[in-house]
Simulated scan of single mutants.
Amino acid sequence: MNWTAKLIKHKGEDRIAVFFERDAELIARIKKLDGSLWSQTLKVWHLPDTYDYRKQFGIMSPEESVPSAEGIDGIAQFKRYMKSKRYSENTIKVYSEALKSFLVFYRTKPIREIDNDDVIRYNNDYILRKDLSASYQNQIVNAIKLFFLVIKDTKVDIERIHRPKRAKVLPNVLSKEEVKLILDAHSNIKHRMMLCMIYSCGLRCGELLALQPIHIDSKRNIVLLKNAKGKKDRIAPLSLKVLAMLRDYYTFYKPTTYLFEGHKPGKPYDARTLQQVLKLALEKTGITKPVTLHWLRHSYATHLLESGTDLRYIQELLGHNSSKTTEIYTHVSTKSIQQIKSPFDDL
């Protein structure tokens, strides 16, 4: 594109001036950019000085893609704090990357000078401008709130940092017939066993892969889930049919450390490979829905509810902190809805 850009001060505000030969098409394009204005005094189009616009117009120096030295130290301190609090490695990684994005955006501003208005500006000029999801924005908020709880002597009021309004999305649920087709699709006993365990116990993918043979209590017909999400232990009932399948599986594979191991003995099965196991099952059944492993957990909860299981027990089985999380399954259960007679039938 035949234009150049540079940083300017206009009416006391940091802006990006964009210079180009007079061209109707280019003028129409720059008018569509958020915050674009024409300066009659400077005779130039100018834009807000944002990270994205700096990147778009090529006026960002290489060092601007990383936080300041103070920001790098802050992230390192943040990681040490989370490790000492025994946050999971995944949470540490997610929060650190989220915080890095925020501190890159404010790399020229001392951390102690960052305030709540800066958080709002970041949400508007980075999160919303890039059309990033509400869940990603929520991760950013979690990281920022925790970071400024650790880093003292700042202008940020943690309690005033607002969260994005979440979309009320219903969980995806399969019918029992669809679940049976998926679970019966594989002849490979390990593949079939893993999918059966997820559905029959309502497990998350990570919970399944962390299982060890000692976590199967065949005397009490339960599965012990150690250090599940939120560092909580919980138990799940074990189907007698699944227990019989587990015995056959254990005899054949003889796992050492983990109940489901990959090619290397003593190492847990790979999560991405497990996703492929499900994908192959869907191909075999001809189900075209975008099913994920978590759909099996959602289906387990919904089918329990439809069979009359009390919502409080389902909350315990799924390991939810709040009953509000579990209550969402009442909106996808069709048992009561199917009993409602449509007035159309009386016409």
Score class of each variant (00 low, 15 high):
residue 228 A to G: 13
residue 17 A to I: 10
residue 12 G to R: 01
residue 314 I to S: 02
residue 101 S to K: 14
residue 54 R to L: 14
residue 265 P to Y: 03
residue 223 V to M: 05
residue 220 R to T: 13
residue 189 I to P: 04
residue 132 L to G: 02
residue 184 D to W: 14
residue 22 R to C: 02
residue 40 Q to L: 01
residue 171 P to T: 12
residue 50 T to F: 04
residue 330 T to E: 01
residue 13 E to Y: 00
residue 298 H to P: 07
residue 87 Y to C: 00
residue 87 Y to N: 00
residue 230 G to D: 00
residue 225 L to V: 10
residue 295 W to I: 07
residue 330 T to C: 13
residue 267 K to R: 06
residue 62 P to C: 05
residue 61 S to V: 13
residue 204 R to V: 14
residue 100 K to H: 15
residue 105 F to M: 07
residue 278 L to Y: 15
residue 162 H to W: 08
residue 238 L to H: 11
residue 198 I to S: 08
residue 126 Y to C: 01
residue 86 R to L: 01
residue 141 V to I: 06
residue 303 H to T: 01
residue 306 E to R: 06
residue 153 D to C: 01
residue 144 I to T: 03
residue 314 I to N: 02
residue 267 K to F: 15
residue 184 D to L: 04
residue 145 K to W: 08
residue 161 I to M: 08
residue 173 V to I: 09
residue 153 D to V: 01
residue 185 A to N: 12
residue 219 K to I: 12
residue 53 Y to S: 13
residue 218 S to I: 12
residue 136 Y to P: 08
residue 128 L to T: 02
residue 143 A to K: 05
residue 6 K to Q: 15
residue 304 L to T: 07
residue 69 A to T: 02
residue 156 V to Y: 11
residue 198 I to H: 15
residue 239 S to V: 13
residue 193 M to T: 11
residue 241 K to D: 15
residue 150 V to I: 11
residue 77 Q to G: 03
residue 115 D to I: 08
residue 246 L to T: 06
residue 305 L to M: 14
residue 69 A to M: 09
residue 67 P to C: 05
residue 31 K to M: 02
